[in-house]
Design a binder for these strands. Sequence first.
DNA 1: ATTATATCTTCATACATATGCAGGTATCAG
DNA 2: CTGATACCTGCATATGTATGAAGATATAAT
Lengths: 120, 120
Amino acid sequence: MDGCAVASTDAARVAVVAESLIDVDVASDLAELFRLLGDPTRVRILYALLEAGELCVCDLAEVVGTTDTKVSQALRLLRGAGAVRNRRDGRNVFYRLDDAHVRMLLDVSREHVSHQHGGE
Amino acid sequence: MDGCAVASTDAARVAVVAESLIDVDVASDLAELFRLLGDPTRVRILYALLEAGELCVCDLAEVVGTTDTKVSQALRLLRGAGAVRNRRDGRNVFYRLDDAHVRMLLDVSREHVSHQHGGE
DNA sequence: ATTATATCTTCATACATATGCAGGTATCAG
DNA sequence: CTGATACCTGCATATGTATGAAGATATAAT
């Protein structure tokens, strides 16, 4: 392997932890989800949807303060990951959150953010 | 701007949502945190620490099943972000979680992951 | 049909990140 | 001191990701 020859401080404990550790593929799924949330524009889009319930691309761009292209690209990723759902109404396409997992992470994070940036 | 000329389906609602939306810098901080969690190796390291409480680099490498170099680089990022803390004991350096925010996100995510991959 | 608006996509470029190798530091044993 | 072990860091490369420009598609109005 690499370095560590005598191996461990406590082999038994290492075995136990290794046993109960999250699988590689599960960890990869989770990491992928976190990476999806790892962009300021996407974060703001998701919070806007969390607040508004449903918004068209046009309004999302205005709320977030960016171009429709940027929003559209962000939404493509979010859509691909199943984080949002869309519905067409005439020329507009309305988006809303469609993942309880994502919604919960947003809720939890918002709490902590407001504590950190508000007044702790 | 870009595209959207008539602007909004509902200007008043857009204004309200824009008003209550999370700030750009706060969103950036959050995105940075999520990006930190956006890597399978780092995720597994964090869960190992969540489970074990404290582990040296050597044991972490064995538990996660990778090289000490990879673990060390991952820990550097996690350390820089304040997610973990370290303590030297002889030749070993022991790491543990040091961020309530991160711990909570891991807890929440683990629940949802186990529901998704376990039995729903 | 034409024109306009809203959204999406393709493509090229710039930037960020992960990875592995090689070497460097720190601690301990002899 | 030397040698060994645990850990860290620099550097080069590959891979991923974000960004904006330009154009394509879809719907509606005239």
